[in-house]
């Protein structure tokens, strides 16, 4: 078996005196869709932030054989690790076009930027229609599409998505999740998906880790976890 694309071991994060992660370990192979599920405050968002360099963490995290921890966020992006943050964080006063251009901030290859933009429009045709509109005027679902599109403009090999279903109309959730799967299948981008909507996350992923109060309490193939009675009771609505 080839070494994993991302290997995380004993990841720990504290916010002042409050410990948010107390030793999280997992690994992801190239081409997989893996999901982290868990309730509020379980440490899902903190895990992603630690990996993309937004918060300081201890432990080890290796991406493609090289360490991630201690690197500034902008360097980590350059290595092909994209992060679509919780709450979307689009640049509200910038237009859709400018948001996408910012996504390609590090890419000096103009032809590739143009190609990536076309691929984003193919995934989310809505964005092409809204190109001159400021991002703050988009609906929640459209902002999520933009946030994903912006991350794809950075040529990621690995994409972390934080709660892409949060606060979005159900009809658009289906579209967005179909496109997440398409990103994985067609572009070969490995995906780490964080979701509160465990049903949905287990449906699209191959493997899952369950986080509770800062540690991994359960893991396995998604179909097995969907059938697990404990998980059913806690996260899958009975």
């Amino acid at each position: 078996m080839s070494p994993p694309l991302l290997h995380v071991s004993d990841l720990q994060v504290s916010y002042g005196a409050i410990r948010a992660l107390s030793g999280v370990s997992f690994s992801i192979a190239a081409g997989e869709i893996v999901t982290l599920i868990g309730g509020n405050g379980a440490g899902k968002t903190t895990t992603l932030r630690a990996l993309s360099g937004l918060v300081r963490a201890s432990g080890t995290a290796e991406f493609d054989g090289q360490t991630l921890l201690g690197q500034p966020a902008h360097r980590i992006v350059a290595r092909g690790l994209g992060h679509v943050p919780e709450g979307r964080m689009v640049f509200a006063n910038l237009t859709v076009a400018e948001n996408l251009a910012m996504g390609a901030y590090l890419d000096r290859d103009r032809d590739r930027v143009t190609r990536n933009r076309e691929e984003v429009f193919a995934l989310f045709p809505r964005l092409r229609e809204r190109l001159r509109q400021t991002a703050g005027t988009l609906s929640g679902g459209e902002q999520q599409m933009l946030a994903i599109g912006r991350a794809l403009m950075g040529n990621p090999r690995f994409l972390m998505l934080d709660e892409p279903s949060l606060g979005i109309a159900p009809r658009l959730i289906t579209t967005i999740f179909e496109q997440i799967v398409a990103i994985n299948r067609q572009r070969g981008i490995t995906i780490l998906l964080v979701e509160q909507n465990a049903n949905l996350a287990l449906e699209v992923s191959s493997r899952a880790y369950v986080l509770e109060t800062g540690r991994v309490v359960m893991s396995g193939p998604s179909p097995e976890l969907r059938a697990d009675p404990r998980l059913k009771a806690t996260y899958l609505g009975g």
């Binding site: 689009v90 910012m102 901030y105 590090l106 991350a151 950075g154």
Partner: peptide
Amino acid sequence: GTAMRAVALNPRAAQLVGINN
């Protein structure tokens, strides 16, 4: 200049697109 506006709007998101704040 666009990066300046991006940092002003959301410094965290700016880092996530590779801007060195």
